[in-house]
Every structure is written in C-alpha cells, then in structure tokens.
Computed example of a mutant assay.
Amino acid sequence: MSGAAELVVGLVILVGLIGIVVPVLPGVILIFGAITVWAVFTGGTAAWVAFGIATAVLVATGVVKYTWPGRRMQVAGVPNRSIVVGGLTGLVGFFVVPVVGLFAGFVAGTYAAEWCRLRRPGLAWTSSWHATKAVGLSILVELFGGLVATAVWLTALTQT
C-alpha cells in the first residue's frame, strides 16, 4: 500500500476516534473499516495479525461498553426508558444546537423522564447524574478500544 493510501487510512481512523467522542459518525465502524481495507491491500502476516487483534479489541470493548455501564445504571435504579428518552432528546438537541445540544439534550431528557417517574426533583437529578456518568463511561470504554486498535495498526504499519 502506498504512503498516500496509508495516510488516508490514518485520517479515517482519526475521524473514527473523533466520531467516538462526538457521536455523529460511527467511530468504531470507521476504525474497523479502515484497518480492514489496510489489511486487505497490504497483506502479509503483520497486517492480518494487526487486523485480528484490532477486531478482537473493538469487539471486546463493544461488549463492555454496553454491559458495564448498563449494570451500573441498573444498580442505581435508572430504567432503560429514561435512557431512551434522554437519547431521543439528545438527538433532537444535536440538530437544534449542534454538538453541545447532544449532551444537553440527553441530560435534560433523562432528567425529565426521571422527574415524571419519581416526582421528586432531587431524586430525578441523582438518577440523571448516574445515567450521565454511565454514558460517559460507555464513551470512555469505546474510546479506549479505538485507541488500542489504532496503536495496533500503527505498530503493524511500522512492521510492513
């Protein structure tokens, strides 16, 4: 694979990492796709081993991303319905106030859902805060997986 093509793969991976933090683009899919294209066109043992390791890391962190924060929210008593409402209002917020509206909309939507459920502002805020921390944890886990996959790719890139 040429240096320019590898640069494009690296840029797609960078966009994927940004897409994890600012969930506008499917970050993990972009990272996985870029590493897959690189492995196919580069070939060789190092490329395919890197592809296998990156895939395993992305899948593992994908599983942890949904199970670990979900368990924490379940222990805190936050129902899935509140998270769905928060996600939908976050999506609307993203289009009303780009990027920042996503986070503000999520918090506001989760709080509103919890306020309707609990009828006590203090408890609703505590529950919303647990949900917000869980979503942040989910993003960090996914970012960790993306960064490890990127490091694996960079290491293999120097070997080919």
Rank of each mutant, 00 (worst) to 15 (best):
F41V: 15
F51T: 02
S2R: 09
G101I: 06
W48S: 05
L157Q: 12
V22R: 11
V97M: 03
T110G: 01
G87Q: 06
L157V: 10
V84S: 02
P98M: 08
G93Y: 06
T45R: 07
A156F: 00
V28K: 11
V75M: 05
S128L: 04
G122D: 10
W115L: 14
G43H: 05
G77A: 04
L17T: 15
T158H: 11
C116Y: 08
S128N: 07
L147K: 14
I139T: 15
G90H: 00
G3K: 02
V40N: 09
A34Q: 15
L118C: 07
T158R: 14
A54T: 01
E142H: 01
T160I: 12
V22T: 12
F41E: 10
V148G: 04
T150G: 03
T126N: 14
T150A: 07
V40H: 07
T36I: 12
P79W: 01
V12E: 05
S127Y: 02
L143A: 15
Y111D: 02
A5G: 04
G27V: 13
V37I: 14
T89K: 08
T155D: 13
W153G: 06
G27F: 13
P121K: 03
G3W: 05
I83D: 00
F41C: 06
Q159P: 09
I35Q: 10
W115D: 06
T61E: 12
F94A: 08
V99D: 05
A46N: 09
T155V: 15
F103I: 13
P26L: 05
G146L: 09
V15M: 11
